[in-house]
Amino acid sequence: MTAWLDALRDHVREFLSEPGVDVFIGYRAGRRGREVPAFLTRPEQASGLVLGPAASGALAKYVLEEAAGTTGRLGVLARGCEALSLQRLVRDLRVERERLHVVGVPCAGVADLAKLEASLGALEKVESCGERWLVTAGGNRHDVDPSQFMEERCRDCASPWPQQCNISFGQAVMSPASPDYSTVAALEALPADERYAFWIRQFERCLRCFACRQVCPACSCVECSLDLVDPPWLGREITVPAQAMFHYTRALHVAGRCVDCGQCQKVCPVGIPVALLNRKLARDIQELFDVQNPFVPGEIEPLGKFRAEDREEFM
């Protein structure tokens, strides 16, 4: 059991008692072993806070709706990617940093619940315990090796520890890794026609549910060009060229601003490897514009600035 959870709950209880505080966004236990986003407004609710591998890791985007039309302070629970996502929203001027109270907590990786369910049965609880996970499923407790059941995006996470928090609890569980670009490289190595066929096969499954956009901390435009009916940049038609336009636009729009939280890919109901598009752009940004870590929000983003001596490899 996580030793810092009680301290965290005490802290949130105090925070919610302070004047001018609107909400604390964290997780509470859901059904079937899930941990779902919780919006706490009263101090006594703090005892319901939980954080385990079943928590999805997409809290940051809720700040937009919660902050709209109010002026109070917002507390947010943040693991590494959630903290980066919050920085993203702050850099994009979607919420003032002063309004946020970012509470950092260690990340033990986010569980691929479908995979856990497929091998262990109906889930009741997923807990992290040191470097292992304890999973209660199908009436039994299992000691599980996280690397087997972790979301793909978490396996090479560069920032498991939350940065730029107001306060943090606990100690790092995962050590930072370097992003693995081998899938990107493998795709690049294919002949153009095969690469095209690969992407079209992915895009053809796209339902245009916009979950990848809705969950993305870098997709915070008030009006999205993809929603426009006039001019219909995307339109409503479901055709291969339109699907490609959607994914091309989405990826390029977040290029240089993506924090690699991987939520876009995680939420996709039809398994489109959306993050592979983001990662390609990030790696190119790193290479072309000499950016050290393309996923950490900077003062000015790579595509919002230039150097006179930038490359001209397209000549």
């Binding site: 779902v36 986003p37 919780a38 919006f39 997409a58 985007k61 809720y62 709706e65 919660e66 339902l207 245009r208 549910c209 916009f210 979950a211 956009r213 809705q214 969950v215 009916v229 219909p232 339109g235 409503r236 038609e237 939420v267 109901p269």
Partner: peptide
């Protein structure tokens, strides 16, 4: 109001659902 706070506003539920049937008509 309380439950919808955590809704992301995507269309997953409606598009994977066997019983949803809403559509819109467009001219291309």
């Amino acid at each position: 109001a309380e439950a919808s706070r955590r809704c992301l506003g995507c269309g997953i539920c409606t598009y994977i659902c066997p019983t949803c049937y809403c559509f819109a008509v467009h001219d291309i």
